[in-house]
Design a protein around this nucleic acid. Sequence first.
DNA 1: GGTGACTAGGTGCATGGTCCACTAGTCGCA
DNA 2: TGCGACTAGTGGACCATGCACCTAGTCACC
Lengths: 186, 186
Amino acid sequence: MVLRYLVLGLLTIRPMTGYDLKRAFDSSVRHFWAADRSQLYRTLAAIVDAGLAEVEVVPQESYPDRKVHTITDAGREALRDWLASPLEPEDSREPFLGRLFFGDLLDGDGVAGLLAARRALAEETVAALTAEEERVAAVLADGGPDADRVRGTRGLALRLATLRHGLAHARTELAWLDETEREVLA
Amino acid sequence: MVLRYLVLGLLTIRPMTGYDLKRAFDSSVRHFWAADRSQLYRTLAAIVDAGLAEVEVVPQESYPDRKVHTITDAGREALRDWLASPLEPEDSREPFLGRLFFGDLLDGDGVAGLLAARRALAEETVAALTAEEERVAAVLADGGPDADRVRGTRGLALRLATLRHGLAHARTELAWLDETEREVLA
DNA sequence: GGTGACTAGGTGCATGGTCCACTAGTCGCA
DNA sequence: TGCGACTAGTGGACCATGCACCTAGTCACC
């Protein structure tokens, strides 16, 4: 369901092929939603079936045809409806906590290793999001390449907010690891 | 996959029926993993098929038969293998951030409403986890009902760590909301 | 001249997860 | 006497996700 609306959202920026979409996706919403190519192509097809977008086939010399998808008014309406619909509680699914919960079936080193691995992942996340944040902040400051200019200043502010969300949580993860290592590995 | 191991983990505490399992599940790992009844029954069946648990049917007067599932040695081994296997990066999927990202298609009130709804959910989470944390801390202090004593002091410390994980992140969410409201609703 | 990356678009299948409804008896409460 | 909650387990449809695989041409680099 959600993926459908993320794709519609990206199509409001400009018409896109599945290929374009994958790149736009990876360089914008990737940090809070994962999807692979096959999913995006399928989602585009479903969106077209539902009349929320239209396809135009653009032949190219020496490259496969481009199937350019353009959002329709019905698509824009569906997107707005989703954005305005009540926010449901999300149920979490965290494999890492599952392991930790049953960590007493490992020896002490096992738990230490688990926490260390988690720390490495959180540090990677902080690094990646920091880099991305700087990139977006630069775009906000001085323009930057066209493909990055996602819908004006207000849009960029929201985009930055989602990045800071990830950063804040990754840093909390590191702080929680400090605390947990102190208490559990005593 | 993960659900399989969470179920095995719970079966290390004591043999259980699907019904028992659902309750044990909801009162322990629920806050970091969601599963409904039908999933748990199916997972139990899959575990038995794989030889990781055994079933004993216990007839009861005036109630349906209990199918008591007991973990096997193979099950314990599979669980330990999982616990010791390398930690993979988890890809996040956050519908809320998806909405926020495209929030500029709503009016200012829409974004404010979205953030307010998110705040309400985060506050609920903090309240629920705080209550749960106190309950678990009390068990750690003075014993408490048998069903709650999940595998000794070390197990309880890990359980508390998973609860504090949720709490830390819920509080970070509230702090991030403060910041985001200041910056986006200006 | 070969290798690999890029452009472009997919298909098929298995697994996992969600939703909903159904059976069927017990028990307490109003 | 009827309603809802509890105990216990099932069936089936559907949606979402992940992984592998395929076609087919262009281009740069070694």
